[in-house]
Computed example of a mutant assay.
Amino acid sequence: MEVCPSCFADTELKAFISASTTIENCKVCNAQNQPTMDLKELMDFFQELMDNYTPVDSGDSIKNKIQGNWSFFSDHQVAETILNYLLPKLNTSIHNANTPVDYIQEITNNYGYWETLKHELKWSHRFLSNLDQLLELGWDGFFNTQYRLTSNTTLFRARVHHRSGDQAYNHSEMYAPTRDYAKGGRANPLGIPYLYLCDNQETVLYEVRASYLDELSIASFKLKQNNEFVNIVDFTEDTPLFQPEMIQETIMGKLLREKVSKDLSKPMRRYDSEIEYIPTQYICEFIRIYTGASGVRFASSLHPSGKNIVIFNQDLLDCTQVDLHKVTTFQLNSSEF
């Protein structure tokens, strides 16, 4: 069976097939005049992929499991066609595209340890946790989805004014609180300030929970010019599955990052206990020490199209501008007061 790049959504696999010199009409997805490749050339990859799943009595099918976690194929029909062709030719007990499966125990134990660690940090032992266990699980290598923050990128931070008619805060007041005033947050422990930023002004509005007619200062931040770039661990990046000889590590890393990202993105509520923040504070410190990254980026739960960026060392950035704004019915308007 011949397949083409349009059969898949995985960027790495699309690029791999696109390098083929054979140009034909694809009989799987009906794309015209495409580079095509015999599925036999992908048998080793799919064998390695199937080795990470095991049949179960009920649950998601192998087709839905792959698509749900990875959006690997272009659509479900293409997934079913390719899997039904390949599975009988592989050394696997997964019979067809609709066989219910789960991940093998080695994978579920790995990402499942996040829940165990959370419980231990909150209720058992906090300061002498088992770092050796995390390193044995390979977690120090699972936060490698990093992007480079450069001085060309503008990030934003807001402070809501407590009364109407005040002038905008000055630049120095838009940084994180000093350590004497730094409360514990999703990423930072009590007394250790991190700088919480957003990738656009609209997300900032949601993150500070600004209300109609609120007045606020919005600051722009950029990486200092003497820093060419810094690396940020990115919990929002789509991870390609097509990484031969690293498939199990790729799956483990993605599933773990999804677990951590979900907890990082939870909005802070007034009645939350600071104990709830300890696991994500811990993992951010683990990332800072074991990856050398300068911060983390994760999805905003309050504004789904926006991203939050936490910088561990705020001295890496300059506050370049502070603007005064007022919240109108559906938008943020700049205003002179």
Results as ranks from 00 to 15, higher is better:
residue 329 T to I: 04
residue 254 K to T: 02
residue 190 L to G: 00
residue 247 I to K: 11
residue 100 P to C: 03
residue 57 D to N: 05
residue 285 E to D: 15
residue 50 M to K: 00
residue 241 L to P: 10
residue 132 D to A: 12
residue 155 L to C: 06
residue 196 Y to Q: 03
residue 304 P to T: 14
residue 236 T to S: 06
residue 324 L to C: 07
residue 29 C to T: 08
residue 123 W to E: 10
residue 172 S to A: 07
residue 84 N to R: 11
residue 60 D to I: 01
residue 17 I to K: 03
residue 176 A to P: 06
residue 88 P to E: 09
residue 286 F to K: 09
residue 68 G to A: 04
residue 325 H to G: 04
residue 281 Q to F: 15
residue 276 E to G: 05
residue 85 Y to N: 13
residue 318 D to M: 05
residue 304 P to M: 06
residue 218 I to Q: 01
residue 136 E to S: 03
residue 322 V to F: 02
residue 201 Q to K: 14
residue 154 T to K: 14
residue 91 N to Q: 12
residue 315 D to I: 04
residue 60 D to G: 00
residue 256 L to G: 00
residue 296 V to F: 03
residue 155 L to N: 01
residue 190 L to S: 09
residue 16 F to G: 02
residue 57 D to E: 10
residue 97 A to H: 08
residue 93 S to L: 12
residue 278 I to A: 07
residue 152 N to C: 03
residue 268 M to A: 15
residue 323 D to T: 12
residue 166 D to N: 00
residue 332 L to F: 05
residue 160 V to D: 00
residue 130 N to E: 12
residue 144 N to D: 08
residue 221 F to M: 09
residue 70 W to G: 07
residue 19 A to Q: 14
residue 74 S to G: 02
residue 275 I to Y: 01
residue 147 Y to I: 15
residue 130 N to K: 07
residue 132 D to S: 14
residue 288 R to D: 00
residue 240 P to H: 11
residue 254 K to F: 01
residue 47 Q to T: 13
residue 42 L to F: 02
residue 291 T to N: 11
residue 59 G to W: 00
residue 67 Q to R: 05
residue 311 I to C: 03
residue 110 N to D: 05
residue 318 D to C: 08
residue 69 N to L: 09
residue 122 K to I: 14
residue 75 D to S: 04
residue 101 V to N: 01
residue 294 S to G: 08
residue 103 Y to K: 04
residue 79 A to G: 08
residue 212 Y to P: 00
residue 240 P to G: 06
residue 246 M to E: 07
residue 255 L to C: 09
residue 204 V to T: 13
residue 309 I to G: 04
residue 215 E to I: 08
residue 248 Q to C: 04
residue 80 E to P: 03
residue 190 L to I: 05
residue 89 K to L: 14
residue 14 K to R: 15
residue 177 P to L: 08
residue 283 I to A: 06
residue 186 R to P: 10
residue 75 D to E: 05
residue 248 Q to K: 06
residue 263 D to A: 08
residue 295 G to L: 13
